[in-house]
């Protein structure tokens, strides 16, 4: 089954728990810059946007990769980096429209979210559940129901 990291942007408080937990789990060091999920913080507005790979269907990162190092897992549909092939040109960083490709500023290694092989740590430290890991179909169902509720309410309000 295909899972997705479902994000409710209005619930994010900008705390970066996700980034720092990710870095410790995957890079064995606590450093929010090394998280495969990042939080773009807009302090004046008080709104914050978690940025993480969307595992795009027509992925710009994979398309521009000159050595085909970005490979989609046929089962989970997650795109992973084959570090044996990656030459570190960072074309994927340029191509990603979200800024979701991460570069370690020290080793210059390129990283991206791969859903932790089906058990992402970030969702467990997000107190408001701004990030959820759910089957894609469930995510769509939830969206549909929330959207239809608004329609229902407005119809009922005007009827």
């Amino acid at each position: 089954m295909v899972y997705t990291l479902d994000i409710d942007y209005m619930k994010c408080t900008g705390c970066q728990s996700c980034s720092v937990a990710c870095s410790l789990k995957r890079e064995k060091i606590s450093n929010p810059l090394l998280g495969r999920i990042q939080v773009a913080r807009w302090e004046i507005e008080g709104l914050h946007v978690p940025i993480v790979c969307r595992q795009c269907e027509d992925a710009p990162c994979a398309q521009v990769c000159p050595v085909n190092a970005l490979v989609r897992d046929s089962d989970s549909q997650v795109i992973e980096i084959d570090s044996n092939r990656c030459i570190g040109c960072r074309m994927c960083v340029i191509a990603c429209p979200f800024g979701a490709m991460i570069v370690n500023p020290h080793s210059l290694k390129v990283m991206k979210c791969d859903h932790c092989q089906g058990d992402p740590l970030c969702i467990h430290v997000c107190q408001n559940q701004a990030i959820k890991y759910v089957p894609l179909t469930k995510s769509l169902y939830a969206k549909r129901m929330a959207g239809s509720r608004k329609i229902l309410d407005s119809i009922a309000g005007t009827a």
Binding site: A21, L24, E27, K28, N31, H124, V125
Partner: peptide, 25 residues
Amino acid sequence: GTGGVSVADPDRFIEIMLEWRRKMF
């Protein structure tokens, strides 16, 4: 800065911080 904080036992630390976060609420 771009540095990080090293942790002696990352896997154990992750378990404990998850328990801590749970018990906080």
